[in-house]
Design a binder for these strands. Structure first.
Lengths: 286, 286
DNA sequence: TCGGCGCTTGAATCGACGT
DNA sequence: AACGTCGATTCAAGCGCCG
């Protein structure tokens, strides 16, 4: 059995074997796109199939360690020249899990006045978030990634208000909710801004900390719970766990990323201590 | 051969047969989810497979009438209890088309201050758009639908700036663009607010007029072009064509919807005439 | 030898980031 | 403000391999 709150320098398929059956509450991860497999075969899509096979193997092993009422949040993006990747991956997971939700991570979006189609022209746009432009007349910039929420039986009860948003119409608060809090269902479209370049350069596909945090909170914070990330990267999932005060286990096979991850965790913990000395812990997990 | 700018009271599979090979520039449609197929068979997923088979047949027939450089914009949503539907449909189209883009129609989204994960709490949220709340602890509200952009060869050049949005960083305008217009790539996440309740009552799955309009403009407005909608519903695609001054052909098998559609078109045309009498036509197609 | 295909390699892209 | 840099970019040219 592995120790909690550690990141292991290990291939996750090997590491997973050391984890007991049904001992993990939440899995949050973003798998790599390209494994460094070299093929000399000519025209076939073997690499893609192998990649999918490999991910499916991990999916199976994750299923074994996941509790019955656990949640697997799988973040996958595509690329303009191949938007099938995330869908193909999801199809493989379909063989083993129920797809309970799909969350859409929106990195950038433009809000415009409603076009009612009666010749009132659009007046103003507001664009929030950023994206890297794409050099192509065929594709629009990709500002979206998927977070597939897989569960074993499709009926995991979620803590929806833990990531709730404020009501627009305040009069609804008292009207509908038994709880008198100013929070409603966030919906499955999550706007989370990009990481800054400096930060994201450390790892090609790091997701923002707000992402695993939302997933874990949505699943529900429970005493002694354990979060697993088979592809830790620079440790964003671990950081969000520290912030949320829950246990984590992670694997990473790239020593550089692991080092960055550990540095981030140390910095984080120090900042946390400093902060805690002047502020009550209750402010965090609200 | 069919007349242009008409909606036909006809099953699209029959109607499509009357359209010549490679004569359609753009197809925009939102197919029905549930066809009224009745099965007395017990536990099988035959209806789903039949539904997919049926849609695939239409996909094939549409491919025949679509020009080589044409675009097929397929709007499909899911439902919380089954998010696979749109992906299954897309998979069937994959057998016949290239998936050039995926656009994400966002009906509602909450914008919040960046969560940098360093104990600065989220300050304020803005929620734009509305959604129908869902009474379930398992699912978050679904605020998203897909628009799959299928083409024959995956290399259709798009008029990206036709649906462009304003720059955030104005200093880039003069720097890169030969044209000095304040427009940039919109990205593939399209915020389009919901239809009003009144409107959506007329037809269960009507999409807002801004949606087909964006699709058509993105493909590019061309002299004498023809837009096809095999499932016209209450004629939203036709309306957007009238507004954009392009030809359309549509099919609809529900007489009630067809009637609503024709009424909408008449009202629209009248409003258009009224409007045109006081305003130049150039204002519309900008 | 020519041509078609596939992989590799370098060029071009443009909106955002950073100074 | 102006400008240099960058991209799980894309694009096109170039080269090698084969029929």
């Amino acid at each position: 059995m592995l120790e909690l709150n550690k990141m292991y320098f290990e291939d996750c398929l090997i590491g997973l074997k050391k984890i007991k059956n049904e001992s993990i509450d939440v899995i949050v991860t973003s798998p790599p796109y390209n494994i460094g497999l070299k093929y000399n075969g000519y025209k076939d899509n073997k690499p893609r199939e192998d990649y999918l096979d490999w991910l499916e193997t991990i999916a199976k092993e994750c299923k074994r360690v996941l509790k019955k009422g656990g949640s697997f949040f799988l973040n996958v993006g595509g690329k303009p020249s191949d938007y099938w990747i995330p869908l193909d991956v999801a199809m493989r997971f379909r063989n083993h899990y129920e797809l309970q939700n799909i969350f859409h991570w929106i990195k950038s979006i433009s809000i415009e006045k409603k076009d009612v189609g009666n010749y009132r022209n659009i007046i103003g746009d507001i664009t929030v978030g950023h994206y890297k432009p794409i050099n192509s007349k065929r594709f629009l910039s990709d500002c979206h990634e998927y977070i597939f929420h897989f569960t074993k039986e499709g009926n995991v009860e979620l803590d929806k208000l833990a990531i709730g948003v404020k009501y627009q119409d305040k009069s609804n608060i008292k009207r509908w909710k038994s709880t008198k809090s100013d929070l409603k269902d966030r919906g499955n479209t999550w706007f989370i801004p990009y990481e800054t370049i400096q930060e994201s350069r450390l790892h090609p596909s790091t997701f923002p900390i707000g992402l695993p945090k939302k997933c874990i909170k949505l699943h529900g914070l429970k005493e002694g719970m354990v979060v697993l990330d088979p592809f830790m990267g620079i440790g964003t999932t671990a950081l969000s766990c520290i912030e949320l005060n829950v246990n984590y286990i992670g694997f990473e096979i790239d020593q550089k990323y692991l080092q960055v991850a550990n540095e981030r965790i140390i910095n984080y913990s120090q900042e946390r201590k400093k902060y805690l000395s002047i502020k009550s812990i209750d402010d965090f997990n609200g």
